[in-house]
Amino acid sequence: MSMIEIENLSVHYPAKGQLVRAVEGVSLRVGEKDSFGLVGESGSGKSTILRAICGLAPVSAGTIRIGGEPVPTPRGRAFSRRVQMVFQDPYASLHPRHTLDRTLSEPLAIHGIGGSDARVVRALEDVGLPAAFRFRYPHQLSGGQRQRVAIARALMLEPEILLLDEPTSALDASVQAETLNLLNRLRAERGLTFLMVSHDLAVIDHMCDRVLVMQHGRAVEELTREALAGAQMKTDYARTLFEASADRMLGS
């Protein structure tokens, strides 16, 4: 069974009197406990797909199904217990005036889940942060630590699906490695399904089994991990992206 099914999704919205076609007829399927990547340059619509799933961008046409069920509008509480999102910029996605304790316990309060004390401590532990960080503010943490908090926050409701919007592109190379390792560990431990967006093909390749290359709001080509490693892409754009990946030049 597919965990996430998207069929012919289009996202159009008016901006400055013009219709912006951010996503145009994109379809994809992500199986249970799979990890699927979306890759493309800025403005290719890859983040918009994640936002549309969460109800943060308008769905103009097409359907989104989670676990076989079409998503309701508004998304509602049951949806947020199954699907959570981690945003790109850990400097912007945490409330600057809330302590980590408050950030992490808020989803529990909204959903009426008790025992938040123990859960917050455990959540910090799970992402490799000391319990002493609990009453700190985001500005007292480094970028990598903040992204760990953002991941912990997304996992508070024990969702099945994590939508990851460029989770490491704001981080240093060495911190990126730690964060990717953390995400892979959590996926293995909890059987999570990942839908991950990145502009870095090497990161997607490391994390995902299948990848959809996007350009100008359209799907260009879907590749398996083997096809990507073997450079068996059929379209020119996917090849351009592959060749621009810094790591290839030096590795080969």
Partner: peptide, 20 residues
């Protein structure tokens, strides 16, 4: 060496990336 190795590569073996 640590800085060089902590980046994922296309077609790499997917084992946890070495931390610094």
């Amino acid at each position: 060496q640590g800085l060089l190795n902590c980046l994922p590569r296309i077609g790499g073996n997917r084992s946890p990336l070495p931390g610094l």
